[in-house]
C-alpha cells in the first residue's frame, strides 16, 4: 500500500519538478524578446542554445570538457585514495592520530582556494597545479568522513564478532563495510562537489583549457553567450555528479538493508 502511494508521490513530484524551471525558462525568453535588457547583457535561451551548438559542432566544447573532467577524475582519485588511507590509519591508530591531528586540523581551516596563489608559485600553471588543487579539495573532507566512520564503529561490534568467531573477511564484509561505507560515500559526494567548484575557479584564474577557461576567455572577449553556456555546463555537471553519487548511496543503502 505504501509502495503505491510512494510511487504516486514520486510521479507527482517528478512532474512538479519541472514546473519552476520551465517557468524560469519562459521568463528568461520573455525578458529577452521584450528587449528589456540589451542583447550584450542577457542573451536569449535560443542564442545560448545556438552558441552551445556551435561550440559543440567545432569540437571546442568537447575538448574543454575533456580537459576539465580529466583533471577532476585524476585529482579526485588521488585525493580520495590518500584521504581514505589516511582516514583509516588515523581512525585505527591513536599515535598516528595524535601525530597528525593538530597539523591536519590547522590545514583543514584554510580554504583550498586560498592556496591557489601559493600553488601557482610552486607548480606553475600547468596540469600539476590543477590536479593538486583538486586532490587537496578532495583529501580533507574524505579524510574527515573516513576518520569519523572508522571511529564510529561501536567497540561492541568487534566483541560480538569475536564471540561468534567471525573470520576477518566476514568481519569486514558484515561489520566494517556496512558501518563505514554510507558515511564515507556522503563524504565522497561532498568532496566531489567541492573539487568541481575549486577546479572551475582554478581554471578561471589560470589555465589554457577547460570549461573555466572557456568562460574566462568568453569574458575577456565580451561573449556573454559563451559565459552562459559555461555556467549551464558547469551546473549540469555538478548536478549530474551529485545525483549519480546519491544514486549509489541509495543503492548501497538498500543493499545494506537486505
Amino acid at each position: 500500500m505504501t509502495k503505491i502511494r510512494d510511487l504516486a508521490n514520486s510521479l507527482h513530484a517528478n512532474v512538479l519538478f519541472f514546473v519552476s524551471p520551465i517557468l524560469l525558462l519562459l521568463a528568461w525568453a520573455w525578458v529577452c524578446s521584450a528587449g528589456i535588457f540589451p542583447e550584450q547583457i542577457l542573451v536569449s535561451p535560443a542564442g545560448v542554445y545556438q552558441t552551445a551548438h556551435e561550440l559543440w559542432g567545432s569540437g571546442e566544447l568537447q575538448s574543454h570538457l575533456h580537459d576539465s573532467l580529466y583533471r577532476l577524475v585524476l585529482g579526485f582519485a588521488i585525493g580520495s585514495l590518500l584521504g581514505l588511507v589516511f582516514g583509516v590509519l588515523m581512525g585505527l591508530f591513536k599515535p598516528i592520530d595524535a601525530f597528525f591531528a593538530s597539523t591536519f586540523n590547522a590545514l583543514r581551516q584554510v580554504p583550498t582556494i586560498a592556496f591557489i596563489p601559493m600553488l601557482v608559485m610552486i607548480f606553475g600553471v600547468e596540469e600539476t597545479f590543477k590536479i593538486v588543487v583538486v586532490a587537496k579539495a578532495a583529501f580533507f573532507p574524505i579524510t574527515m568522513a573516513t576518520y569519523d566512520a572508522v571511529k564510529g564503529i561501536p567497540r561492541s561490534y568487534f566483541e560480538v564478532s569475536k564471540v561468534y568467531q567471525l573470520s576477518h573477511i566476514s568481519l569486514v564484509r558484515h561489520v566494517i563495510l556496512p558501518a563505514t561505507v554510507p558515511p564515507i560515500l556522503t563524504g565522497l559526494r561532498l568532496a566531489l562537489g567541492r573539487s568541481w567548484m575549486v577546479l572551475v575557479a582554478a581554471e578561471l584564474i589560470a589555465a589554457d583549457s577547460g570549461i573555466g577557461q572557456m568562460m574566462e576567455m568568453g569574458r575577456q572577449m565580451f561573449r556573454i553567450d559563451i559565459v552562459l553556456v559555461g555556467v549551464l555546463v558547469t551546473g549540469l555537471i555538478g548536478f549530474l555528479l551529485d545525483r549519480s553519487l546519491r544514486a549509489v548511496e541509495t543503492h548501497l543503502g538498500r543493499w545494506q538493508q537486505s
Binding site: 512538479l16 524560469l24 547583457i41 567548484m197 572551475v200 559565459v227 558547469t234 551546473g235 555538478g238
Partner: peptide, 26 residues
C-alpha cells in the same frame, strides 16, 4: 516547497565562483 525545491536543488550544484563572469557583467 514544490516550486522552489527543484530550482534550489539544481542551482546549488552550480560552482558559485563560476558565476563570477556573469555577475561581473551584470
Amino acid at each position: 516547497n514544490k516550486l522552489i525545491g527543484p530550482l534550489y536543488h539544481t542551482m546549488r550544484q552550480v560552482p558559485l565562483l563560476g558565476l563570477i563572469p556573469l555577475i561581473a557583467l551584470w
